[in-house]
Amino acid sequence: MDFKGIKEKYIECFGIVVIVLALGRCAYDGFTPSGEQEAVVAQTEVVIKETTEVNAVKKGKHHPIRSVRSFKECFPDTNAVQLTAAQRWGVKPVKDREDAENRKAELVYIGASPYYHVDPLHQSIPYMVPRAAILLEDIGRAFFDSLAVKGVPLHKFIVTSVLRTQNDVVKLRRFNGNATENSCHLYGTTVDICYNRYKTVEDPEGPARRVVRNDTLKYVLSEVLRDMRENNRCYIKYEVKQGCFHMTVR
């Protein structure tokens, strides 16, 4: 007999009964529930929700993938908005690679994380201020968690640009019209996260993971980034031509 399953079912039924009795009591006595009664009802609802979600995952019923209503509307933060945050939280603009080597007391290396992948960088270097590095790590963890509860094989998102020196910006502007002279990337606060490529997490000697469409992974990533932005952790701009989320810590 599955006693664990019976216990979980009992908790769900008990919670529902408590809510029904509480609401019935309110209707019978003709008064509004007190703060204590409302708290009991609210806590019971949380227990029911959490138990239902756990049971759903155990039964193979994963959370739905919803994405966001509009990438442009949900991630509208312009360079001007992000630049203000970059100047507040970042380092002084780095002149060149030699100058960057002397700034490592202010910057942390972000090129080796279990939660995301950094592309080979030609116009930037993988260093950020600690505040931004923590944000990036938190996004990577949340992305893994979200993929797991949605039943999607684990993938790492890809970082394509990080800290740029002033010399990097000059070179980049020669062939990239969107690269600004006063770039947020100068301050170690900003990254570009690719939304149309991902790295599959799998055992190189084991069986291949099932293929997942990039659009599916983009939808999940956008949910995570939306939540981070709404929690005032960052500013984000959805870049169409560059195929990335341009993000600055705040």
Results as ranks from 00 to 15, higher is better:
Pro114Ile: 04
Ala39Thr: 08
Thr52Asp: 13
Leu217Asn: 00
Glu181Val: 07
Phe143Trp: 06
Gly24Glu: 11
Tyr10Asp: 12
Gln87Thr: 11
Val40Ile: 03
Phe175Ser: 10
Asp138Pro: 04
Phe143Pro: 02
Arg197Thr: 09
Val20Asn: 09
Leu23Val: 07
Thr248Cys: 08
Leu147Val: 01
Leu186Trp: 10
Thr189Phe: 08
Ser34Phe: 03
Asn231Trp: 08
Cys26Asp: 05
Tyr127Arg: 07
Pro130Tyr: 04
Ser183Val: 03
Tyr195Leu: 14
Ala80Cys: 06
Ala105Val: 12
Asn55Trp: 10
Val41Pro: 01
Asn214Trp: 00
Val201Lys: 08
Ile19Arg: 00
Arg25His: 03
Asp99Val: 06
Val224Arg: 00
His63Ile: 04
Asp215Ser: 06
Arg233Ile: 14
Leu136Ser: 12
Ala112Gly: 14
Gly30Phe: 02
Arg209Tyr: 10
Tyr235Ala: 04
Ile6Pro: 07
Tyr116Met: 04
Asn231Gly: 11
Lys150Trp: 06
Pro93Ser: 04
Gln166Ser: 12
Gly5Ala: 15
Arg210Gly: 13
Ile110Lys: 08
Arg164Met: 08
Thr190Cys: 14
Ala100Trp: 09
Pro76Glu: 02
Val201His: 05
Cys74Arg: 11
Trp89Thr: 13
Val249Arg: 06
Ser34Lys: 04
Phe143Cys: 07
Val46Arg: 04
Pro153Gly: 05
Val169Trp: 01
Val54Lys: 12
Glu202Met: 10
Ala148Gln: 13
Cys244His: 08
Leu83Val: 11
Cys26Gln: 06
Asn182Lys: 05
Val201Leu: 11
Ala133Leu: 10
Ile19His: 00
Tyr115Phe: 09
Val18Pro: 00
Thr32Tyr: 00
Gly177Ile: 08
Lys241Leu: 12
Ala142Gln: 13
Val159Thr: 04
Ser146Ala: 12
Thr248Gly: 05
Gln123Arg: 12
Arg250Ser: 14
Tyr187Ile: 07
Leu135Gln: 05
Arg141Ser: 03
Gly188Leu: 08
Ile139Thr: 09
Val81Thr: 08
Arg210Asn: 13
Leu163Arg: 01
Arg210Phe: 14
Glu181Gln: 09
Val212Ser: 04
Ala142Ser: 14
Asn55Gln: 13
Leu186Phe: 10
Lys72Leu: 11
Pro114Val: 04
Val57Lys: 12
Cys26Val: 09
Arg250Gln: 13
Lys58Glu: 10
Val68Pro: 01
Leu121Val: 02
Leu21Val: 01
Lys104Asp: 13
Val46Glu: 07
Lys104Pro: 09
Val118Leu: 12
Thr52Tyr: 12
Asp192Ala: 10
Ile6Asp: 13
Ala208Tyr: 10
Lys61Asp: 14
Ser222Ile: 00
Arg250Asp: 14
Asp96Pro: 06
Lys241Asn: 11
Arg250Cys: 15
Thr84Asn: 03
Lys104Gln: 15
Arg97Val: 15
Pro130Leu: 05
Val129Asn: 03
Lys92Val: 11
Val149Leu: 10
